[in-house]
C-alpha cells in the first residue's frame, strides 16, 4: 500500500485500488493533483490499468474529485483499461449522476465487488 495524505493506493492482484481519503476537500486542489500525478506514475510503472476508485472515505464531493476521476479515467482508457467506482455515499452518487459520470463507470458497493466487476 502506498500512503499519501490524500490518496492511498493498494495493489490487489491485477488491479490497483485508488482511495481518496477523508482529508480531501475542495480546497486542497493543488496538493491533490500533485498526489494524483504520483498515482498516475504508479499506474504507468506497474503497467496496471485495471482500477478501482474507492470513495468510501468521503461524505460528499464536488467538481474537484470529479476532475480527479476524469484524469484517472483518461489514462486508464488510453491504455485499454477498465475502471470501477465503489463505496459511494448517497449525495456523492447524485454528484456522479448529475455530471453524467455514472454512465462512464460501473458503481459497486464494496471494493471486493468492484474487483469482481473488473474480472468479468
Amino acid at each position: 500500500m502506498t500512503e499519501r495524505r490524500l490518496i492511498h493506493t493498494q495493489r490487489r492482484h491485477a488491479a490497483i485500488v485508488i482511495a481518496f481519503q477523508g482529508e480531501v476537500t475542495q480546497f486542497v486542489d493543488a496538493e491533490l493533483f500533485g498526489e494524483l500525478d504520483q498515482v498516475l506514475n504508479e499506474l504507468s510503472e506497474a503497467d496496471v490499468y485495471q482500477v478501482v476508485v474507492d470513495l468510501g472515505q468521503l461524505d460528499y464531493f464536488g467538481s474537484l474529485i470529479l476532475e480527479a476521476m476524469r484524469k484517472i479515467w483518461t489514462v486508464v482508457e488510453a491504455h485499454g483499461g477498465r475502471m470501477v467506482v465503489c463505496r459511494v455515499a448517497d449525495v456523492s452518487r447524485e454528484v456522479l449522476h448529475i455530471a453524467h459520470f455514472d454512465t462512464l463507470w460501473p458503481i459497486a458497493d464494496t471494493v471486493d465487488g468492484a474487483l469482481a466487476l473488473l474480472r468479468e
Binding site: 467538481s63 470529479l66 476532475e67 454528484v95 453524467h100
Partner: peptide, 19 residues
C-alpha cells in the same frame, strides 16, 4: 452534461450549484 463535453472540467461546479 453534453456528452461532447464530459471530458472538459468547465461548468461542472455551476451544474452542481444549480442542481
Amino acid at each position: 452534461t453534453d456528452p461532447a463535453n464530459l471530458d472538459r472540467p468547465s461548468g461542472r461546479g455551476l451544474l452542481l450549484m444549480y442542481t
